[in-house]
């Protein structure tokens, strides 16, 4: 069969738009609330609501470990999960570049279906626009989600307390490194796949261990280093980490060595940074290590009083120095 492509007519609102929606989106996102009316109609629940939105552009749109569809579900699911919310419903808006292959669009939708099913979230409304050639890079997706907060859970970026342990749920920098390699701009090869994963299941198990968790944040763009600075700032505390305790996969370490990059500042898409009382930390890590997306979870540091707003690192020679704050575009360096 001849390969079919998305055309401007697919976005014009007529018969072809319906065909695209029916063949691609309805086929994958079918559920009772996905009616195709102007808005989804949902039953309220008794608890608190978490509500979040995120736009996704990634080049290339598919990469080892996932594609933009999987990413767009994980991103919003994880944002909700960080607030202790079970993801319930999502919407998604596509901007598709004219000429994008239809079968590839279907691959993206299939990845979204699979990831949403895993996270237990329903896609209940959507939108499709087609942009002229060159106006967007293949496909952009925006997802919005609402979730139901587990009773008794109150995570917040302002809630880190002196004495809290700082936990990461796995090795850092994999997604950023994967994308960098997939762009093939530097001629480097390594067996690295994206950590992109939906983490509601992880968070749900975590709260079975204890509800006394102060902060959960997913490290996305900017990596774990950026999250540490965000929390230090929002909670008005200092954070001390041990450089040797930060898990980094071999391939990521090698690529960072070649390009002079810091793994703590490479993006993750399936890693949480958790702040919880030290007394709970061991039990949390033990539980995390039994779960599929957090087998390499580790305590990497603790919250301290001073210096407020800063992240201190204990280095391999036992000296304490500052983690450079996040800044600007990540550029490979030679010097």
């Amino acid at each position: 069969m001849e390969q079919q492509f998305v055309t401007l007519a697919h976005g014009a609102g007529g018969e072809q738009t319906n065909e695209l929606i029916n063949k691609v989106f309805k086929a994958h996102f079918a559920n009772p609330q996905f009616t195709g009316d102007d808005a989804a109609v949902l039953e309220p629940w008794s608890g608190k609501i978490a509500f979040s939105t995120d736009g996704f552009i990634v080049s290339p749109w598919e990469f080892p470990g996932g594609n933009i569809g999987k990413l767009s579900i994980c991103g919003t699911v994880n944002d909700l999960a960080c607030m202790g919310a079970k993801p319930k419903y999502m919407t998604c808006a596509f901007v598709i570049e004219e000429g994008f292959p239809l079968d590839k669009l279907e691959e993206i939708a299939a990845a979204m279906e699979k990831t949403a099913a895993e996270a237990g979230v329903r896609i209940v409304a959507g939108d499709t626009k087609v942009a002229g050639k060159g106006q967007v890079d293949n496909v952009f997706i925006t997802t919005t989600g609402i979730g139901e907060i587990i009773p008794g859970v109150r995570t917040s970026g302002t809630a880190a307390r002196v004495g809290d342990a700082v936990i990461v749920t796995g090795d850092v920098g994999r997604h950023g490194c994967t994308i960098l390699l997939a762009r093939d701009e530097f001629g480097i090869e390594a067996d690295v796949t994206s950590d992109c994963a939906p983490l509601w299941g992880t968070v749900e198990e975590l709260f079975k261990v204890t509800k006394d968790i102060h902060v959960i944040r997913d490290a996305t763009r900017g990596g774990v280093g950026t999250v540490l600075y965000e929390i230090a700032g929002q909670s008005h505390v200092g954070i001390k980490i041990d450089s040797k305790a930060v898990p980094v996969a071999d391939g990521v370490r090698g690529v960072c060595g070649m390009l002079g990059l810091e793994p703590l500042y490479l993006a993750c898409e399936g890693r949480l940074v958790i702040f919880a009382p030290k007394s709970e930390a061991e039990a949390i890590v033990a539980k995390l290590r039994q779960l599929p997306y957090s087998a390499d979870a580790a305590i990497i540091g603790e919250v301290i009083e001073d210096p407020v707003g800063k992240v201190v690192v204990t280095t391999e020679i036992g000296a304490q120095t500052m983690l450079p704050p996040p800044g600007g575009e990540l550029l490979p360096r030679i010097c």
Binding site: F186, I188, E189, V255
Partner: peptide
Amino acid sequence: DASGARRT
């Protein structure tokens, strides 16, 4: 090969 990263 450096820690699993390879390049010519």
